[in-house]
Amino acid sequence: MNLYRPELKRFRFLRWFDFRSWRLGMLAYILNRVTAIGLVVYLYLHLAVLFLLAQGPSGWDPFIQIARTPWFLMLDVILLAGLLIHGLNGLRVALTGFGYGVRSQKPLFIALMIFAAIVLAVGVFKMFMG
């Protein structure tokens, strides 16, 4: 598909993923959108899971058994990563959006992502070893 055809307006968002243009700011931009979509999907999944509570222990207890499996915990790791990336990058966007740290947006992103990685590592350790 050629994305430069002006008539293909409905596919314009695909240009976000044209990796030839990716620089750090663009990577942060794409990460924020991907994690945002993931968090919205999670929200609905969360509501669906909570609905199991209405079915009493017969519905809830089997789910808890599944939730404690390593494969399910991996989903928690992805969720935590999404929350950290989106939240911390959001902080950067808010700060620069109000005119603070504008010239430092790249180092700010790197520093926040290092912080996110550290928190994620601690979270993974707690989840699997705690």
Binding site: S21, G25, M26, Y29, G99, V102
Partner: peptide, 29 residues
């Protein structure tokens, strides 16, 4: 503007348009 900073990165003349956008937001706020 959603702060991708591509305009400033791509600008061949170091005009820093993204910084101008952020400065305008600050003024408006």
């Amino acid at each position: 503007c959603h702060s991708a900073w591509e305009c400033t990165e791509a600008c061949p003349q170091s005009v820093f348009p993204a910084e101008s956008i952020m400065a305008l937001r600050k003024e408006i706020n």
